[in-house]
Nucleic acid binder design. Structure first.
Length: 257
DNA sequence: ATGTCAGGTCATACCTGA
């Protein structure tokens, strides 16, 4: 079972690229972030025609998350992160697919920091940690996949120097990520490739792709009952180099059935 | 400090978020 996460940066503007990638790599599950489309403008028909059932939580202009499942409909279990009913940003959706619980998340970017956006990021992270404990407690096989907007360590970036003041590298962001992992989650990419420089995002600025000036911020975390099933993990890097690409590349794991 | 995208609007130029 192949499970991927892909920050598409606009699901309608990027639709041909998305469909092309689905056709080429045939993931069983695809978690999408940054739809940048209101609920009614999600390209449901095109995705269904490509062979995928989908659930999504849209939002005009920003955010927006979706879960696609090849040949079936995801069974929705949540469409927002528990813990703050006043939070209206579309950043979490969850579904069961083929007996695996899939959480698709788009953690707040948090820039500029310090400031209210960074506060919101950290508060959202604390809610995720709280809910993560609940998920672990369920004992279910779970994949928490998405754009975490956190560079876990300096090894996960080409060069931290020009990003030291960025919300993605702040000690508070990294500490929250570490505390989430400490509940028992496995960072699948890093687990299988401990010594490899792996990036999932390359800024549109300053020819970042051309210089391979990347960051690893898209993560797939596996619960204790899912982790022993991990077979492969990787990044579809070539997708980032194409015409009209998102600034993120699809990132994926394969679990033993 | 700069730079590039996407989507949206009191739209054909500017804004925000990333």
């Amino acid at each position: 079972m192949k499970i991927a996460t892909f920050n598409v940066n606009g699901v309608n503007g990027r639709l041909p690229r998305l469909l092309e990638w689905l056709e080429e790599t045939q993931p069983d599950v695809a978690c999408l972030q940054e739809l940048k489309a209101p609920q009614e403008k999600f390209p449901e028909k095109a995705i269904r025609d490509a062979g995928y059932g989908a659930i999504w939580q849209g939002q005009s202009r920003w955010n927006g998350v979706a879960i696609l499942a090849r040949g079936c409909d995801p069974v929705e279990t949540k469409r927002c992160l528990p813990g703050d009913p006043s939070d209206e940003q579309a950043r979490y959706i969850e579904a069961a697919v083929n007996n695996v619980l899939i959480g698709c998340l788009y953690l707040p970017n948090g820039n500029p920091q310090p400031g209210p956006k960074f506060d919101y990021k950290l508060a959202w992270f604390e809610r995720l940690i709280g809910y993560g404990q609940e998920l672990i407690g369920s004992g279910l096989p779970i994949v928490l996949a998405g754009d975490y907007n956190v560079v876990p360590t300096d090894f996960d970036i080409y060069n931290p120097r020009s990003w030291l003041n960025d919300a993605l590298l702040q000690p508070e962001s990294r500490d929250a990520y570490r505390r989430l992992l400490a509940q028992g989650w496995t960072d699948a990419l890093r687990h299988l490739h401990p010594d490899e420089a792996i990036y999932t995002f390359w800024d549109y600025f300053r020819n970042a792709w051309g210089r391979n000036a990347g960051l690893r911020i898209d993560h797939l975390l596996l619960s204790p009952s899912a982790a022993p099933r991990l077979l492969e993990a990787g990044v579809d890097r070539d997708v980032r180099g194409r015409e009209g690409a998102s600034d993120h590349a699809p990132t994926w794991v394969v679990l033993d059935d």
